[in-house]
């Protein structure tokens, strides 16, 4: 199959993914924005009014923009991984009967999650900007660029998970448990500076920590990110992607035997 028809195929699957996600639910495409908004509402109520969470530092932003800048990218990432993990299994009927490049299925699924949540992200940033919440929109291009390695990371993990899920069906359940751990292990809800100094460096082991920091630096000028950690994050994303493709290619030929 040549590159051109692969593109057409990817577009068709994207179209299908979008429709599957939005035409089946009551509120249609509004759900994409509504669900993270509700989530944000709950979190900001709990953290701002119940726990009275504070961000340290004189120029610290309010808690809501602080949360938005990391939570939205996290939602894109975790939803992409969760949904893509079962995509091969869910398309067993198609895979068993039609020859197609299967990675297209995973790619389309990850793309859809990112498209939905990046759009939602930009929308809510604009809303917050209008509400004068100290969003530096000048940092938006840089913030959007941070989505590139995040996408690569998600795609790599998704490819590996989707392939392994064919063999071990418990993986999806396991991920539902593991992803929140990864979220709480990254400074999404809290600021790294609030942790005891001995613990702080350990957070860097979590691949998402960089992204939480990066989005806040670009959009809120909060905290700092060293150039070296940018390089490491990009390298990690590239490595994960290559490894994911490797695992997927290795197992691809045997999907039919185990589906």
């Amino acid at each position: 199959m040549n590159a051109m028809s692969s593109t057409t195929l990817t577009l068709r699957f994207l179209q299908r993914e979008f429709r599957e996600r939005f035409t089946g639910s009551l509120s249609g495409s509004a759900w994409a924005l509504l669900q993270p908004l509700l989530q944000l509402g709950v979190y900001s109520f709990v953290f701002v009014h119940v726990f009275k969470a504070r961000i340290p530092g004189a120029d610290a932003p309010g808690y809501v923009p602080f949360l938005v800048t990391a939570l939205w990218p996290w939602t894109a990432f975790s939803e992409a991984v969760l949904r893509s993990t079962t995509v091969i299994q869910n398309n067993a009927a198609l895979i068993g009967k039609v020859a197609l490049p299967r990675e297209v299925l995973v790619f389309a699924s990850v793309c859809t999650s990112f498209a939905v949540h990046v759009a939602g992200f930009v929308a809510i940033l604009l809303v917050l900007r209008v509400g004068n919440a100290g969003i530096a929109l000048g940092g938006l291009p840089l913030a959007l660029m941070s989505y590139v390695p995040l996408f690569a990371l998600a795609l790599g993990i998704s490819l590996a998970c989707a392939a392994v899920q064919v063999f071990v069906r418990d993986l999806a359940q396991l991920l539902v448990q593991l992803l929140p751990l990864m979220m709480f292990g990254a400074p999404v809800f809290y600021d790294r500076a609030l942790l005891p100094p001995a613990v702080q460096p350990w957070l860097s082991l979590n691949p998402f920590t960089f992204y939480a920091d990066a989005f806040r630096v670009t959009l809120l000028h909060h905290g700092s990110v060293a150039w070296s950690s940018v390089a490491i994050a990009v390298a990690v994303a590239a490595l994960v992607l290559v490894a994911g493709i490797g695992v997927f290619r290795r197992l691809d030929a045997h999907f039919e035997d185990f589906l």
């Binding site: 028809s5 057409t8 195929l9 068709r12 009967k97």
Partner: peptide, 25 residues
């Protein structure tokens, strides 16, 4: 019905089947 998705219309399924066989838009 191999490769057809039951939830989609005939027209949509033609589009998908065509893409699976390498036809562009």
């Amino acid at each position: 019905g191999a490769g057809f998705h039951p939830e989609y219309s005939g027209r949509d399924n033609i589009a998908m089947a065509a893409a699976l066989h390498g036809l562009d838009g």
